[in-house]
Write a protein that binds this DNA or RNA. Structure first.
Length: 599
RNA sequence: GCGGAUGUGGUCCAGUGGUAGGACAGUAGCUUCCCAAGCUACCGGCCCGGGUUCAAUUCCCGGCAUCCGCACCA
């Protein structure tokens, strides 16, 4: 992170990201990732997949981005994604109409009303503009649905929406996913992909966009028995900014609590063990991918801030210098309870439960009747069915009634008397092996684009090297768009060109994303790679060709230091560096170093 | 959506009622054996639409986009 370097300018010039469809004037809130940015994003996604799917033993799916309307009716997005705004005729400010009404009346869910009804309420209660005090009565209440609507199929078709979060694609498929998990909790399902929000006013480049990439994990648990393996992250240090501290009238820094995951749980700062667990996993992951942990914190949502589904929620926030030093949300960790699965069960009528086996089967006595319809039919005619049903109901409610010789039931005000024998009453012993429960959901949800932006912002450095200022991106080797660049020291000497080509081929065969550059001076080529964050450069020079065995120089991006290493040891060293098994210090200690010449 | 500012080669900027220049970047060549060197040449631009005008990149209107503030950000 560097104050005078411009992230947006670098991103455009070097192909990280830029406004989409600029040739046609563009559309706000849409960005294209250029070659460097797309590679960086791929690496972020791969690292996330490795940590949150592979290492956690969760399964990844790929659901459609468009779903039919009932999905979002059930999920609550159709209602709560609708913001009702009213504009002040005097000062022109817009306010949440539903919030104004809720503040002035007993209504708690004004959002569920029609806009016209809300406008009427505003007039009825003589509500005024909170900013300037002008009367708002008679102003139109406008509705903004933040979901992109489309229609499925020809003609008027079936209404559908682009998903506002990837999560719903997991929730609606729960009946299948639980089968795949063989009905056993806990299990987790991940998804990485785009989500769409028709923001009223996209701003600040990549930070608020209309199409974003989410990486989400839905962990399905039995809230009564399932515990996370807290030990794995118990000692990870977190910077926590809890709700009470945010409400205190003090600078943010004073409200921070630096606690380990274990301490956060023991002291009750983070109420849910599951959330604490994922905060720890996330902290480690952020360190791994190169987020500056000095610019990272976990902030608890204030009670009024939570999403419609969330019981408790913490955000990971990164401080972004290029966004004016603001803290921006880069991930959210929510306890969604059984909200989503219950809503989809209700909306679809399908089974969104899992069967929870008891440790010991329970034996219960269940009274039942099996009325002899051959007797009841002739006796009561068309009412026989209803009488049978009434007997069943009576058996559950009052089994003792069947101890008499006759039982009486009432159907539609009429009393029927039945011989107890005809009812075939008995008390059966039934064994219950378990019960059907709706799992609860713990959701870590990451914004991939914002993470990419954070890596660029935190990684961008400016220093002096060789007596000249330079900008470079200090990406972790695992994240860098290009793994290694190979240069012939000069471009007018055939053997150097040939050897450089061979080295590139060898590196590519070993799985590296290697690039080659022989245009311009060696210094210029180093700077080009520095600016896109390539961690290592290999230079083929004439001295090296004369060595036995042949050598090349290997340069470290951050320091410019160089080691002369045998060409056939290059792949091994780079693999170790890339995997974080060694660092450049060790490489320098192991080989002859090359003194850079200033100027 | 409101208010303000802005929109000129790839990038950052200057400038003009008679269609425009710099710096950096890029390409080719020469040079060059380790950190944005030099020389030569080249490539490349007035956001879009309408209006005023003999003539608009310039002035006016509208649109789109970007930045800042307000609101919004489930």
């Amino acid at each position: 992170m560097s104050e005078d370097a411009d992230v947006t300018e670098l991103a455009k010039r070097r192909g990280f990201f830029f406004a989409a469809a600029e040739a046609y004037g563009g559309a706000a809130g849409f960005y294209t990732f250029g070659p460097e940015g797309a590679a960086l994003k791929r690496n972020v996604e791969a690292a996330w997949r490795d940590r949150f799917a592979l290492k956690e033993d969760n399964e990844e799916i790929a659901a459609p981005t468009i779903m039919p309307e009932p999905v979002f009716e059930a999920s609550g997005h159709l209602d709560t994604f609708d913001d009702m705004l009213v504009e002040c005729p005097e000062c022109g400010e817009s306010h949440r109409a539903d919030h104004l009404v809720e503040g002035a009346t007993d209504l708690e869910d004004a959002e569920a009303l029609e806009p016209e009804a809300v406008a009427d309420l505003i007039a009825e209660h003589d509500l005024v503009c909170p900013s300037c005090g002008a009367a708002l009565g008679g102003q139109d209440v406008e509705e903004f649905n933040l979901m992109f609507e489309t229609s499925i199929g020809p003609g008027s078709g079936q209404p559908g929406y682009l998903r506002p979060e990837t999560a719903q694609g997991i929730f609606v498929e729960f009946p299948r996913l639980k089968e795949y998990a063989r009905g056993k909790l806990p299990f987790g399902v991940t998804q990485i992909g785009p989500a769409y929000r028709n923001e009223i006013s996209p701003r600040r480049g990549l930070i608020r966009v209309r199409e974003l990439t989410q990486a989400e994990l839905e962990t399905f648990i039995d809230p009564e028995t399932d515990e996370p393996d807290l030990e794995k992250v118990a000692d990870v240090e977190l910077r926590l900014y809890a709700a009470p501290e945010q409400q205190a009238d003090a600078p943010a820094e004073e409200g921070y609590q630096e606690l380990t995951v274990r301490e956060a749980v023991d002291e009750g700062v983070v109420a849910s063990d599951w959330i604490a667990y994922y905060l720890g996993v996330a902290q480690e992951w952020y360190e791994r991918i190169g987020v500056d942990t000095e610019q990272l914190r976990f902030r608890q949502h204030l009670p009024g801030e939570r999403a419609h589904y969330a019981a408790d929620c913490w955000d990971a926030e990164a401080k972004i210098e290029s966004a004016g030093g603001d803290w921006i949300e880069i991930a959210g960790f929510s306890t969604r309870s059984d909200y989503d699965l219950s809503k989809h069960a209700e909306g679809s009528g399908e089974n969104f439960t899992v069967f929870k086996q008891y440790d010991e089967p329970k034996t219960v006595e269940r009274p039942s009747v099996d009325p002899d319809m051959a007797t009841l039919g002739p006796e009561f005619g068309g009412d026989a069915g209803a009488v049978a049903a009434a007997l069943e109901e009576l058996a559950e409610r009052d089994p003792d009634a069947f101890e008499a010789a006759e039982v009486t039931v009432e159907v539609d005000g009429e009393t029927y008397t039945v011989d107890t024998e005809v009812a075939n009453f008995e008390i059966a012993e039934e064994t219950e092996a378990g019960e059907h429960i709706v799992p609860h959901v713990i959701e870590p949800s990451f914004g991939v684009d914002r993470t990419v932006y954070t890596l660029i912002d935190h990684g961008l450095q400016r220093d002096d090297l060789g007596g000249e200022p330079r900008d470079y991106l200090s990406f972790a080797p695992e994240m860098a768009p290009t793994d290694v660049a190979v240069f012939p020291l000069v471009s007018n000497h055939e053997p150097l060109l040939d050897t450089a080509s061979e080295v590139v081929s060898t590196l590519r065969a070993a799985g590296f994303d290697a690039t080659r550059d022989d245009s311009g001076s060696i210094g210029r080529r180093y700077r080009r790679q520095d600016e896109v964050g390539t961690p290592f450069c290999v230079t083929v020079d004439r001295d090296g060709l004369e060595d036995d065995p042949e050598t090349v120089t290997l340069r470290d991006r951050d320091t410019g230091a160089q080691a002369r290493i045998p060409t056939d040891e290059l792949v091994g060293q780079l693999e170790a560096l890339h995997a974080g098994e060694t660092d450049f210090e060790s490489v320098l200690a192991q080989y002859e170093t090359v003194e850079p010449v200033d100027g």
